[in-house]
């Protein structure tokens, strides 16, 4: 567990050191990259506003809780915390939607709770599958994406089922 705390500073040190050794202008490269990422993050904001309106109201009305309670027996069977089910369902469809749901779970259950950890692992180990298929096959004008969608969704399902297992085994 402590290894992961070392990993981040080590990677930063390694990358910057390598850059200097290779005589790269690390300062301007860093700033360019940071500027691009900031633009990307701010670009998410309009979507997030609408999403948080829906998600926030859904949670405040008590509807989210009722839905979780109704789905709890199914989740229990597969070992998934019920709070994480909306995330699992939304993840392949909408990246920013999933980000909003993850934010809500982390606020609601706490980031170091079992549900918070499982939700984090789930979010980190999956992608917005439908968007990815649409972008890659669409841009390259490839037809017949049915099998690609099935294979990618099989991966998503595996990630959803394995996340609680991995959290139990590794973090405990």
């Amino acid at each position: 567990m402590k290894i992961s705390s070392f990993l981040v500073p080590l990677i930063i040190l390694g990358v910057l050191g390598w850059g200097l050794w290779k005589k790269t202008d690390i300062f301007s490269a860093f700033c360019e990259g940071a500027a691009d990422s900031l633009k990307l993050a701010l670009g998410l904001l309009p979507t997030l506003c609408f999403l948080m309106l829906g998600i926030g109201m859904f949670r405040a009305s008590g509807a989210a809780e009722a839905l979780c309670a109704a789905l709890a027996p199914v989740c229990e069977k597969i070992g998934l915390p019920p709070e994480c089910l909306p995330l699992a369902l939304l993840r392949p469809v909408s990246g920013s939607g999933a980000l909003g749901v993850l934010g809500e779970i982390l606020e609601g259950s706490g980031p170091d709770s079992f549900a918070g950890r499982v939700a984090s692992v789930m979010m980190g180990s999956t992608e917005t599958t439908f968007y990815t298929v649409a972008v890659y096959f669409g841009a390259a004008k490839i037809k017949g994406s049915r099998r690609a969608v099935i294979a990618a969704l099989a991966g998503d399902l595996a990630a959803v089922l394995l996340s609680p297992l991995a959290v139990r085994l590794i973090i405990g």
Binding site: G19, T24, A29, E32, G33, A34, S37
Partner: peptide, 9 residues
């Protein structure tokens, strides 16, 4: 993004 741009460049 900054660190990784350095890695890229």
């Amino acid at each position: 993004g900054g660190v990784m741009r350095v890695a890229e460049v």
